[in-house]
Design a protein around this nucleic acid. Structure first.
Lengths: 327, 327
DNA sequence: CTGTTAGCGCATTCAT
DNA sequence: ATGAATGCGCTAACAG
């Protein structure tokens, strides 16, 4: 009817009726039904964001980034939280497909191809963040986590450490493997034997792994941890066992929280441009939604940052140590 | 058609056809269009969550809580972030109304009644969290922040402090006023003059306020801060000015992050059961959505927790001080 | 047990 | 410049 025109193409309607319509709209507090519009236009102006974990500050910033970028383009975002369960991930993606979202941004649990395939099979554009998806032809926005891990390990090597262990997350998760491999790269380059333990991306996982490392007859003097939770567990455990960080044990990590949120940033480690990842991903997605781009999957690799704080120190010989910290 | 029945009321259709239908569904990868269902049923199975700030860990946990509780009941959640702008808040609520969400949970910017009125005027049930809304007849889930603030201030008084200042947030925000009043209550009870500065709920706000407090000829020995951001700014500024926390200056606060996310929880203060607030709010909302309750607004006040960490110490006399910390 | 009719709210198309 | 017809995908109600 004329109402629709008055609201969507005001020029095509006479000023007089337009005024009358707008007055009535105001009077009746009429709000156009976007569901109806969606049905008619076959687009919902909604994008879905599937993320495994929001308890991690990492996930939070992604939410902010996607949310901001999407809103700027007039899109609404619905979030689906998978709690790290791949079945739930697929279920959530089905649900989004049912809602006929115009596109999906996925931070996958594992790098299995099913979720992406499903979405693409439904004709819904999808962009993956954080992980490479070798089995899918899909847009990916991520950092080179393996290279970052190598850099991180080299930093410890340069400090003189030789007993460096790696405590990573669940071996099924790509990130855990990538970071372990970057560490292994650096170790082998330095002519040393990698020493990797896969566990769990959690405080408990970090605590458990660290305990067995420190109980060895020759414990490591430095640990590369797979993420901030593991680092936290490691630091707690070290303290509990009377091992001082950083003087007795250096710890480096990934995915630190924003440093402006803590009084004393403690962990030295790699920081990812989380917000930017989310924004770039949203842009790539909108390219496809709006038909500005069609073609094979694009990959965008963003730079990480290396932040030095207080969880690392030079490796001291026993002699140096006894001099500096007399009993 | 029969497809609909096969999927929604499988009993009412013969096993044979049902099998055929399900086979076809599988074959064609058919996913029912929830948008169409929404139009037909006049319900979308979506609830909106309007929150002002997600950079605060506080907001994050609320997201988790709402998300979990809603999902458990089969509802999807769309998040709307207002960045603390009341105009944006109203705009987002209009947008949610346009999407015909079945209900709204609102963590308001100010306690102006417009947003709630609008939502209720549209026939959309709404529940407010965190703040009292004296001008609206609406369900509210919150803590007694004024009482908590009183308790917090008493703690400082019991430590022997007499020069206690309060650094709160934007005076337009209810929380800022409530917390200031709780502080003032405790001070007056103890026969002292309240000393409140309203500023901004941010690190910068805390820094600025603390600087002018500490530059006084008789600076306070303790500060009650309006939230964790202000506390952070206060601690940074104190350190910059060579004032040691907690020995020279005690700081207490509200809305700390989960203590399992930091290595050394530093600030003594009030912790709200954020997740629980979100869950209770979702329950109240579903009561109304599902018609299980209609009537005047209900209020649920949840208990806060008081956590003691390392940002406070007893007030020492100058003599005591010189004894303990010889120059 | 299955098919038909009709309408949820909207906007494109065509007719006036 | 406005109105009428039509269909987006779905299901309640009614026929068969």
């Amino acid at each position: 009817m004329t109402v629709s025109r008055s609201l969507n193409q005001p020029e095509t309607v006479s000023p007089a009726t337009r005024r009358r319509v707008l007055a009535a709209v105001d009077e009746l507090k009429y709000v156009p039904n976007v569901v109806g519009q969606g049905l008619r236009h076959r687009r919902t102006m909604v994008v879905g964001f599937v993320v495994s974990d929001v308890s991690n500050p990492f996930g939070v910033q992604q939410i902010q980034g996607v949310s901001r970028a999407a809103r700027a383009q007039g899109y609404t975002v619905v979030f689906a939280i998978t709690d790290g369960d791949p079945d739930e991930e697929l279920r959530q993606i089905r649900a989004l497909a049912g809602r006929r979202v115009d596109g999906i941004i996925l931070s996958p649990v594992y790098n299995t191809p099913d979720a992406v395939e499903f979405s693409q099979g439904q004709g819904i554009p999808i962009v993956v963040i954080d992980y490479a998806m070798p089995q899918n032809d899909v847009d990916v926005v991520r950092c080179d986590t393996r290279e970052a891990s190598r850099e991180l390990t080299r930093y410890l090597l340069n400090l003189g450490h030789t007993q460096i262990a790696m405590l990573s997350g669940n071996e099924k998760i790509v990130t855990a493997v990538d970071r372990a491999e970057g560490y292994a790269d650096a170790m082998r380059e330095a002519g040393m034997e990698p020493d990797v333990t896969f566990g769990d991306f959690s405080v408990e996982g970090g605590a458990k792994g660290t305990e067995s490392l420190l109980r060895r007859t020759e414990p490591p003097t430095a640990i590369v941890t797979g993420n901030n939770f593991i680092a936290l567990g490691a630091a707690h455990t070290a303290r509990r066992l009377g091992v001082e960080v950083p003087s007795d044990l250096s710890i480096v990590t990934f995915d630190n929280a924003r440093t402006d949120m803590v009084l004393d940033p403690f962990f030295t480690g790699i920081v990812q441009p989380v917000m930017e990842i989310a924004e770039v991903a949203t842009d790539l997605l909108l390219d496809r939604i709006l038909g500005r781009f069609e073609g094979r999957g694009r990959t965008r690799i963003l730079q990480t940052q290396f932040e030095i704080h207080n969880s690392t120190s030079e490796k001291l010989t026993d002699k140096q140590r006894s001099l500096r910290k007399p009993t």
